[in-house]
Amino acid sequence: MTLLFNILAQGVQMLLVLALAPLLIGFVRKLKARLLRRKGPPIIQPWLDLIRLLRKEVVLAENASWLYRWAPYLIFAMIWVAASLVPTFATGLTFSWSADLIAIIALLGSARFFLALAGMDIGTSFGGIGSSREAMFGSLAEPAMMMIVFTVSFVAGTTQLSEIAAYMVANMELRASVGMALVALLIVAIAENGRIPVDNPATHLELTMVHEAMVLEYSGRYLALIELAAALKLLLYLSLIACVFFPVGLASHDAGAEAMMIGLCAYVLKLAIGGGALALFETTTAKMRIFRVPDFLGAGLMLGLLATLLVFVTRSL
């Protein structure tokens, strides 16, 4: 019975992230439009777009290979699995131990790997430019992320996300190192999701685009999967920030249905706050030049390293 309930909770989490991810995108878009005094499309619009895309015929470039056709499924699956392993409303779900924080980051890395390859498959210069820049961003963002992982897991003594969240709930206090890690994680999250000021998700046909350039040739269901994966990635980063730094209201896996409902409400609220902050930040910031991005990410890396060193120093005193 308990096992059934646990598996059910895990299944609910998988479907929950899937359902919420496009809504989050829609919410951010709506808010951005309102901030610019436009009316904006309804929040459900991304879902409508996805459904429309799924029904459309795919137009494949003439020399697209099998890799190009597999990649969307793989990318989507990897990011979906990663997103379902991050605690959202409850910690310690049945399969949460199958991958720790490092493995989740690496899963995102795998998805990036295949996306960048898919970008190069058709052999157009737009695809190449996107892949090349994505590889550069990745090679700076990933180490920064690892430094954040180091900091958090030195503090909590574990790399299991559920355990980290439990530790953070039990030991609520302000730590300079964790604060620095939070700032670093925000920087990484912005870069990894291709948001302003690193990349503009609304852009098209610009030489500065990165993510859009890689997926330029995709259409129909493949495009839908990649868009959904991108939405899931944004949701994942917000869940990660919420679960590690603001674990208020997170239910334990054996807390029963009522605590889980509270956890769910808290989670949706946290997502709304995160999305609101993102929309506000994006409307007040300008996009930066592509070669300023390494400086931006370098700042994240340095902050992460400082946080790690700080933990090392303070722990042994």
Binding site: V58, L60, A64, T124, G220, R221
Partner: peptide
Amino acid sequence: IHKFGTARSRRAPAWDC
């Protein structure tokens, strides 16, 4: 996707903007 969407695809020259 194949059940509720479509599995059709067609080959065409690359779009490349």
